[in-house]
Amino acid sequence: MPHMTIEYSANLDACVDMAGLCTLVSRTILETGLFEQGAVRVRAFRAEAYAIADLLPENGFIDMNFRIGKGRSAEEKKRTGEMIFAAVSEYLAALFTTPHFALSLEIREIDAELSWKKNAIHPRLRGK
């Protein structure tokens, strides 16, 4: 259950290909070798209303929240976060040339007893 939610300020629409960013994040998650392809979800949500720092209209943000199931070591989680953050930072390098952009990533573990799922994609990808 690796689910990445990307929230971003609407003013980034003109300068960031969000579909491309989602694809990059999905590929990077799979490259860790820790997650099954059929479970990976990456989605981006545009924030129309926001107030950032000193309220300049050119201020923008991307906040990534990565929810995963339990079972990975602290080292594996750290390596995963570092891989994702490095890939996204490189993808967004142009935004860091201005003093108006903030990027964040947080990894959260989900309590399996409080999470329900039903997935018809797994059998297809597993060849069953």
Rank of each mutant, 00 (worst) to 15 (best):
I107C: 00
F45L: 11
L95A: 11
N65C: 08
C15E: 14
P2I: 10
R41D: 05
K78C: 04
V88R: 02
E109C: 07
E31Y: 04
R43N: 06
R126E: 05
P123G: 05
K78E: 14
G127R: 15
L56D: 07
D13K: 11
D13L: 09
F85S: 13
P123E: 08
E106M: 12
A112F: 06
F85I: 06
G127I: 12
A87E: 03
R124L: 12
F96P: 02
H100Q: 14
A53W: 05
G20W: 09
F45D: 04
F35I: 09
I29G: 00
M18C: 01
S9W: 03
K70G: 06
V25N: 01
A94C: 07
R67E: 13
A93S: 09
E36G: 06
K70H: 07
A19H: 10
S73Q: 08
I110P: 01
G20Y: 08
L12P: 00
R46F: 07
R46V: 07
E36K: 15
F66R: 00
P99V: 15
T80L: 10
R67C: 11
D13V: 08
S73C: 04
L34N: 07
E75G: 02
E82S: 07
M4D: 02
E48K: 10
D111T: 14
H122N: 15
I52H: 06
F96V: 13
A14H: 08
A49S: 12
A39V: 10
I110Y: 07
F101H: 07
V40W: 03
H122D: 09
C22W: 11
L105R: 02
P2Y: 03
R46H: 05
W116P: 01
F35N: 02
M83F: 10
A112T: 15
F85L: 11
K70L: 12
L105D: 03
P57V: 15
M4H: 05
N11C: 11
P123S: 09
V88G: 00
T80H: 04
S89R: 12
R124P: 00
W116F: 13
R124D: 06
A47G: 00
A102S: 13
A93R: 14
K117T: 12
A44V: 10
I84E: 03
I6R: 01
A93Q: 08
W116N: 14
L30R: 12
L92F: 04
F66P: 00
A120G: 04
W116H: 14
T5W: 02
F61R: 01
N59K: 09
D17H: 02
A47K: 08
G81D: 09
F101D: 04
F85C: 02
R46I: 09
F101L: 10
C22S: 15
L55A: 14
Y91A: 05
A39F: 07
Q37W: 13
L30T: 03
V40T: 08
N119Q: 12
T97Y: 03
W116Y: 15
R72L: 13
T32Q: 06
D63F: 12
Y50L: 05
